[in-house]
């Protein structure tokens, strides 16, 4: 950022890189010092945040080679692999937390992936874009077209996101899988959180993104 103090003089301010809000929300759900697997960890931004701020043993799975390379260069332990198949290879209860950050909608078998995560982790954290948000509903209702938003900018024929769901859909699935919803957070485009005591229908309409912390009931 450049700020002018007097004509002709510019001082460059170094802005500390602030991590994405959804990543901060996820990170805040993780107990320091725990073992974490990030499924679909991309370039490792969340894992690095967790390693730096929560002192966790951070592991990741990432399908793209570029992502894996970036993670390895950051010193993160990341395996190239496909969440849709490779989660089956992990033993039960290997991790304290298994995280699926902005990836659920891109899996071929979201239910199977969730079941595997609940098997290999004591707790599961899922963050996803809410397809029930009013802006998306509005686009479908008024224009009759698949929605394009700032968070979901890719046309339907190119998007890797093949299994969108709404917050209510996700809550239904959680009930079907008989898991406990320990915490849930929804927030809007400006980062404002949806009131905690609001009913699900309200969250579903005004939450642009959601983060759930789940655990097995037994």
């Amino acid at each position: 950022m450049l700020t002018s103090t007097s004509p002709g003089t510019f001082i460059a301010h170094t802005i500390p890189k602030t991590p994405r809000l959804d990543l901060v929300v996820v990170a805040n759900m993780v107990q320091p010092g725990s073992r974490v697997l990030d499924v679909g960890c991309g370039d490792g931004e969340l894992l690095q945040l967790l390693a730096e701020t929560r002192d966790v043993d951070a592991r990741g799975i990432e399908i793209s080679r570029d992502g894996v390379n970036e993670c390895v260069a950051k010193g993160l332990a990341v395996i190239q692999g496909d969440a849709d198949t490779d989660l089956a290879d992990y033993p039960d209860d290997t991790f304290d937390y298994v995280i699926l950050s902005q990836t659920l909608q891109a899996t071929r078998r979201p239910r199977w992936v969730l079941e595997q995560m609940l098997r290999i982790g004591k707790r599961v954290i899922v963050s996803f874009p809410n397809f029930g948000h009013w802006r998306i509903r509005g686009q479908l209702l008024w224009y009759g077209r698949m929605p394009l938003t700032k968070n979901l900018p890719v046309s339907w024929y190119d998007t890797p996101n093949i299994h969108f769901c709404t917050i209510r859909d996700f809550v239904d699935l959680a009930r079907e899988l008989d898991v406990k919803i320990e915490r849930a957070v929804a927030f809007g485009p400006s980062g404002g959180r949806v009131r905690f005591d609001a009913p699900w229908w309200f969250w579903n309409l005004f939450g642009e993104q959601a983060v759930f912390l789940l655990s097995r009931k037994n």
Binding site: R65, V72, V78, I79, G81, Y90, T94
Partner: peptide, 16 residues
């Protein structure tokens, strides 16, 4: 890689 994971060793893997 699976064995290293099961043993808890910090492992990365890339297929080029």
């Amino acid at each position: 890689v699976h064995a290293l994971n099961a043993a808890g060793a910090p492992v990365s893997f890339a297929e080029i």
